[in-house]
């Protein structure tokens, strides 16, 4: 048997899956530098791939995408941030996370919607205190809106801070979570006084609210005609109401 045969059989067995843990680790390492081995592996992958056609598709649990997104989020936030020390860097991390959401949403649709992540309420917090607050600000400067949600009663309170009612335009609040599908879902169109009914989130499970992201967009009167954000965004920044609470998310 020639060396070439050996390499080919090593690649074949690697792809087939019959090597033991050490051998597999060795192949993984070796293929980085050994283009011959790498090419053989790719050939065997292509040869045997049709065998996988007969694997029965099985839906994973409904929470898996959310788990994956949280992992990715944590990864994207921590990459390049260095150590998180004190409030300032926590806030930086939150901003980065928010930008991350904004960017991906902006790429995917012409309409940019501001999305702010929400904080997990610390266990035992009294319901009267707003467990988490998302602040939506305009031009990255002053807060335009503040959204607080009480998880226990699922009551929400939207308050304009500097935002003004716009002539012939409406503000619309959106919620986004993996379990609701890939697109933001409308929570409601803000009233003329820029308020929303406090029970607007009552249909959503508190667990979902904890991990969901929120956004506010500017829409035609009566709200988006398409069911998706179409107008310019008010960008949101998120502020922890409690240091420990933000720590849980970071």
């Amino acid at each position: 048997m020639t060396d070439r045969d050996d390499i080919d059989m090593l690649a074949a067995e690697y792809v087939l899956g019959t090597l033991d843990a050490d051998e597999r680790a060795e192949v993984m390492q070796r293929r980085q530098a050994d283009s011959e081995l790498d090419a053989r592996i790719l050939e065997w992958e292509a040869r045997l791939a049709p065998l996988g056609d007969e694997v029965e598709a099985i839906a994973p649990g409904p929470d898996l995408l959310a788990r994956i997104e949280r992992r990715i989020e944590a990864m994207e936030v921590t990459s390049g941030t260095g150590e998180h020390e004190g409030k300032v860097s926590q806030l930086d991390a939150l901003r980065r996370r928010l930008r991350f959401w904004r960017w991906s949403t902006g790429l995917a649709s012409a309409a940019a919607v501001a999305l702010a992540a929400v904080l997990i309420a610390p266990v035992g917090q009294t319901p009267s205190e707003a467990p988490f607050v998302a602040v939506f600000s305009q031009d990255d400067q002053q807060p335009a809106f503040m959204l607080s949600v009480d998880l226990d009663s699922r009551r929400l309170n939207v308050r304009p801070v500097t935002a003004e009612p716009l002539p012939d335009r409406a503000y619309q609040l959106w919620i986004k979570d993996a379990s609701l599908g890939p697109k933001p879902r409308s929570v409601g169109v803000l009233n003329d006084d820029l308020s929303l009914p406090t029970d607007a989130l009552s249909d959503f499970d508190p667990e979902l609210l904890k991990r969901a992201t929120f956004g506010i967009s500017i829409e035609p009167p009566g709200g988006s005609p398409t069911g998706q954000p179409t107008g310019p965004a008010i960008h949101g920044y998120l502020y922890p109401t409690d240091r420990d609470a933000s720590g849980q998310r970071l």
Binding site: V55, E56, A57, L65, T105, S109, P182
Partner: peptide, 28 residues
């Protein structure tokens, strides 16, 4: 390709389209 540009919506759509196949492969 959109996922390479950090497009989260594309990622979610990709997941929806492929998760059952990949999960079936792994679970088997």
């Amino acid at each position: 390709q959109r996922v390479t540009r950090r497009d989260r919506l594309a990622f979610a759509e990709l997941y929806d389209a492929t998760a059952a196949k990949l999960y079936g492969t792994v679970l088997r």
